[in-house]
Design a protein around this nucleic acid. Sequence first.
DNA 1: CCGGTGATTGTCT
DNA 2: GACAATCACCGGC
Length: 204
Amino acid sequence: MSQENTKKNYIIPAPVNQEFFEQPTLLLARSLLGCILAKETRDGLAGGYIVETEAYIGPGDKAAHSYLNRRTKRTEVMFGESGLAYTYVMHTHCLVNVVSGGIGKPEAVLIRAVEPVYGEGLMHERRGVDQTIKLTSGPGKLTKALGITMEDYGRRLTEPPLFIAKGIGPESISTGTRIGIGNSGEAKDYPWRFWITGNPFVSK
DNA sequence: CCGGTGATTGTCT
DNA sequence: GACAATCACCGGC
């Protein structure tokens, strides 16, 4: 159930429970579509519907950071329990994943795009763009819009400040190959990218 | 310690 | 379509 916080002028949606994250990674990647991803900071709440995801299933996935069970400081959280946040820096941007697969199985779902629902004004401030479509239509854009940083590495997504909540049920889901992993052999052909059919915030 | 690499984005041609 | 920005991570020496 949602709880109203009368000290602030918005309603914080209730996070999903732990069991939600314990489904197989490819199913979780689909189930996350339509859910709310939100972050609460001093500046307020910012969040939106997840409209695009990608699954990464180490150790057999050459495109995954955890390929061959590679366990390093960066990938460590992927070996932890499902429902933790795996954030990492890509060039000048921070990207966010949902850890899945359970303890010892380094799998994750990358959040590639969301559709603004809460704090759109705040997102405009953070992004410095005036077109709403540019706010969250990419994995690096959405983290900046929501205020997600490396500070969120390893945080549980079942409670604020960074959490996932039930949203809408997508009418139709499309699948395809993942983006930006050209140098990963046959893994580049796996149909492990999912998006809400026709949603304008899906990355191009 | 040093150099290559990358699950991206914005800008310029 | 090409490319720079900019940096943490990672492997090799």
